[in-house]
Amino acid sequence: MHKSVGSAADSAANPSPLSDRLVGYGCALLAVCIWGGWIVSTRHAVHGHLPPATVGWLRFIVPATVLAPAWIKVGLWPRRGLIPFVICFLGAGGLFFLLVANAMRFVPAADVGPLLPGTMPLIVALVSVLVFREWLGTARAIGFIFIALGVVALNGRSLLYPEDGAWVGHLLLLCGAAMWAGYTLAFRRTGMKTVEIVGLVGLWSTVILTPAGLPGVVSAIQEGYGEEVLFQLVMQGVLSGVVALVAFGVAIERLGSSRAAAFTGLVPALAALIAVPALGEHPDTAAILGVVGTGIGVVLASGAFGQGRRTG
C-alpha cells in the first residue's frame, strides 16, 4: 500500500506509532479548520455573484494544475484500483461540490456543518463496523454517540421546523455526507498517493465543470467582481482544493478511515465560530450545547485515548 508524499523517507526514518498518530492528528486538524472556513465562504459565494458551477471550477482548477506532475505519472485514470478511484471522484469531486453548493442555496451555514461533516464520520463508522468488521472500542463508540447527539442539538430545531424549501437542502447535504464517507473509505484502497488522487479528481472535476464554470468566472471579472473571484480561488482552490485534501489524505493514511473521519465532527463548531464575524450569525444555546457535545465526541472517537485497531 502506498504512503503519501515522502513514503520512502518515512520508511527510512521508521517513525514510531505515536509519531504517526501525531502527524495524522495535525493534518486532520488543519483540514477541518480549512473546511470550517470553506462552508462559510461557499455559502457567501452562492448567495452572491458566483453560481455553484463557477465556484466549483475555481476549486478544482488549482489542484488539477498544481498537481499535474503527480497525475500525469498515473495517466488520465488509474490502471489499478479504478473502482475505488471512481468512488473517490464521486465523493469529493465536481458532482459532490455541485450537490453541496446547491444545498447551501436552501439552508443557512449553521445547517451545513451538522448535516455534512457532522454526519459523515457516523456513516464511516457504521460502514467500518458492519462491512469491514472494525472494532471501535468503548471510548470511540461513546465518542460517536456524542457526535450524533451534537449533530441533533445543532440542527434539531431546523429539522423539526424547516423553513420553506429547507428540507431540500437537508436532503442534499445528507446525500453529500454519504458521498464524502465513500471517499474516506475508498481513499486507501486506490493504491495511489494522496497527491495523485487529489490531482486526478481535480482534473476530471475541472473537465466536467468548465462548460458552465469558466464563463461564470469571465462574467464575474467583467462585472467588477475580480476580488471575490481571487478570494474564492485561494479559499476554494489552494486551501480547500489542495491543502485540505492532501492533509486529510495523510490523516487517513496515518490514523485510518474512521479516526480521520471523526475529526470532521469539529467542522460544525468551527463553521459556527467563523460565521459570527463573517455572516453575522450568532449561535444559540442549542448550538453551543451541540458544539460542546461534538467536540467531546471527536476527542473520544479519534482514538486519542487508545490506539485500537486500524482499518480502512
Rank of each mutant, 00 (worst) to 15 (best):
N155F: 01
V168G: 00
G237F: 07
R140M: 13
S158M: 06
I208L: 15
W180N: 08
A178D: 07
V246K: 00
L160H: 09
R189V: 06
E228Q: 14
T210M: 09
D164M: 10
L136G: 09
T190K: 07
L200E: 13
T184W: 00
V201S: 03
L255Y: 06
Q236A: 15
Q236I: 12
L245R: 13
P211Q: 09
V201A: 04
F187Q: 11
H170V: 10
P162Y: 08
A177F: 07
A178N: 05
L172R: 05
L214F: 14
M192A: 05
F248N: 10
I252H: 01
G137A: 11
L149S: 05
W135H: 12
A251Y: 02
F132H: 10
L245K: 09
K193W: 02
G137M: 14
E223Q: 13
G249W: 04
I147K: 01
S219N: 06
F187C: 08
A148N: 04
V195K: 00
A251T: 07
G143N: 11
G241W: 15
T194R: 00
E228V: 09
S158V: 08
T190M: 04
R157V: 08
V201H: 04
G156C: 09
W180E: 10
I147C: 02
M235F: 11
V195R: 01
T138F: 06
P215I: 09
G191F: 12
Q222S: 05
Y161I: 10
G249H: 04
M179F: 14
W167N: 06
V242N: 04
A177Q: 03
Y225N: 07
G249I: 13
V218P: 00
G191I: 15
A178I: 15
I145E: 01
F187E: 05
H170A: 07
V246N: 01
Y183Q: 03
Y161L: 03
G224T: 10
L136R: 10
S158W: 01
G241D: 13
L214N: 10
D164T: 15
E223N: 09
W180Y: 13
E228N: 09
G150R: 05
V152C: 05
I208R: 02
R188S: 15
L149N: 05
E196D: 12
L214P: 01
A220R: 00
A251S: 12
V234N: 07
Q232K: 01
F231S: 07
G216V: 10
A153P: 00
A178G: 13
S257I: 09
V238T: 11
E134S: 13
I252P: 01
Y225K: 00
A220V: 03
L200T: 11
R133F: 11
